[in-house]
Amino acid sequence: QEEEKEIKRLAKKFNASEEEARRAWKKAGGDPETAEKILKKKG
C-alpha cells in the first residue's frame, strides 16, 4: 500500500517512529511534502 510505504520512508528519513510519521501524514492530509515539513519542525 502506497500510504504505508510513504510512512515508512518518512519515519526512516527523519529518524522518527512510524507512529509519529503516521500522525504527521494524517495531519498533512496525506500530502508527503507537508508531512515532511511537520516532521522536520518536530525533529
Rank of each mutant, 00 (worst) to 15 (best):
Q1F: 14
Q1H: 13
Q1K: 14
E2P: 08
E2M: 11
E2K: 10
E3W: 13
E3G: 08
E3L: 09
E3S: 11
E3A: 11
E4C: 10
E4S: 09
E4Y: 08
K5R: 14
K5F: 14
K5D: 12
I7N: 01
I7M: 04
I7E: 01
K8P: 03
K8I: 12
K8E: 11
R9V: 06
R9T: 05
R9L: 08
L10R: 00
L10Y: 02
L10D: 00
L10N: 00
A11Y: 02
A11G: 03
K12N: 10
K12Q: 11
K12V: 10
K12R: 11
K12W: 07
K13I: 07
K13L: 12
K13H: 06
F14N: 03
F14Q: 02
F14R: 01
N15W: 04
N15E: 07
A16H: 04
A16W: 03
S17T: 14
E18Y: 15
E19W: 07
E19Q: 08
E19M: 07
E19H: 05
E19I: 06
E20S: 09
A21K: 00
A21M: 03
A21Y: 01
A21H: 00
A21L: 03
R23F: 09
R23H: 14
R23L: 12
R23Q: 14
A24E: 01
W25D: 02
W25E: 01
K26S: 10
K26I: 09
K27C: 12
K27F: 08
K27E: 15
A28S: 09
A28F: 00
G29R: 12
G30Y: 04
G30K: 06
G30W: 03
D31E: 05
P32H: 07
P32L: 15
E33F: 11
E33Q: 12
T34R: 13
T34G: 12
T34P: 01
T34I: 15
T34F: 10
A35Y: 02
A35R: 00
E36D: 04
E36T: 05
E36W: 04
E36H: 03
I38A: 03
I38K: 02
L39G: 00
L39S: 00
L39M: 10
L39H: 00
K40M: 10
K40C: 09
K41V: 05
K41F: 14
K41T: 06
K41H: 14
K42Y: 15
K42I: 15
K42L: 15
K42M: 15
K42S: 15
K42T: 15
K42W: 15
G43R: 10
